[in-house]
Design a protein around this nucleic acid. Structure first.
Lengths: 174, 174
DNA sequence: CGGCATGTTTGCATTATGCAATACAAATCA
DNA sequence: TGATTTGTATTGCATAATGCAAACATGCCG
């Protein structure tokens, strides 16, 4: 392993307070992942997380071709291809020949696919809402603002070293 | 300890404020997962996320047998078995025959395995710290408290099977 | 038309996973 | 103590997710 020096290090290594924040974030992120997995499992036992992500992309962005679909999921076309085949076989997707361009094929959700997405999404939001509901109300508002600030701060393109698409063990990126 | 609702309603009401919180949480969670994937990829291209999780479990909980290891990762023994084989082949794990009980085998990290875990963990904490550092300081403290309340509200482990946190806190797992 | 770019498929290899069956070892029972 | 049951590890078999490279198909240009 190349001990490549990490480019971004704009902050002091061991600041007690910063450590506290980082730990809080990491802990919360673990909970969030667990919630997602649970919600999905409760709706569709046979659906994997990558498959669910594909349905979600099609649901929120509308029909698109295999390559673009793969791009949204950070996988190469061949992977997207096989996933589409499986989900088509499961009745959740359908392929539509694009009349204007015969080398592209539009992939779209079927009614069944949309049903699954909606059910899982509702379930996840409900689970998160349940957890939030168990928080002291004062913390709820603080959470919204703090998370917004956090998301905003993290939105910036990852400093340097963005070039590599970074090999994908990257599952569960709902 | 906050007044965590003893009987959380299984169905959450969809009032505007709750929706806001849920949306903020979902948005932040996407960012967190992306950060995790990036950090791992930047340290070890050949390591998958499940493999990394296995190393982390062994790092934070110490050596254990295949079955328990699988339990911590939510996979069945055969899956854990094969993962151990691969990671052993990669020089990150080693098997130790248990003298007191010949039907169990202890799996432990090698120095190389520990190095990988530490590097990836440091990298991830650094990335999060970078994001947090870009937040207004006032929001930082609010974030800690709010996330703690959130994690606590959602911490409903089936059993209390967590031993004392062996090392430097933060058993963030993946 | 001929080459280049864009998209889709296939072939091949590896990892992750679950289920079922097997092989041992330890514990329990009759 | 010998037979049965239980706990672990391991192997066989099957499917999904992935990447890379190569084979095709189609659209565009000069």
């Amino acid at each position: 392993m190349p001990e490549r020096a990490p480019a971004p290090r704009p902050d002091a290594p061991h600041d007690g307070e910063a450590d506290e924040v980082v730990t809080a974030v990491l802990t919360a992120s673990r909970l969030l992942v667990a919630v997602s997995a649970r919600s999905l499992a409760s709706v569709e036992e046979t659906l994997t997380l990558p498959q669910f992500r594909m349905l979600v992309v099609l649901s929120t962005r509308g029909p698109m071709n295999i390559s673009r679909l793969g791009t949204h999921l950070d996988v190469i076309p061949s992977t997207a291809m096989r996933m589409v085949e499986r989900l088509t076989g499961a009745g959740m997707l359908e392929r539509e020949l694009n009349p204007g361009n015969r080398r592209e094929i539009l992939i779209r959700l079927t009614a069944e696919g949309r049903r699954v997405v909606d059910a899982a999404t509702d379930r996840r939001r409900a689970e998160i809402a349940r957890i939030v509901g168990a928080m002291p109300p004062a913390h709820r508002t603080a959470l919204v603002e703090a998370l917004r600030a956090f998301s905003e701060a993290g939105d910036e393109p990852p400093v340097a070293e963005q070039a590599a698409p970074a090999r994908t063990g990257t599952d569960m990126r709902w």
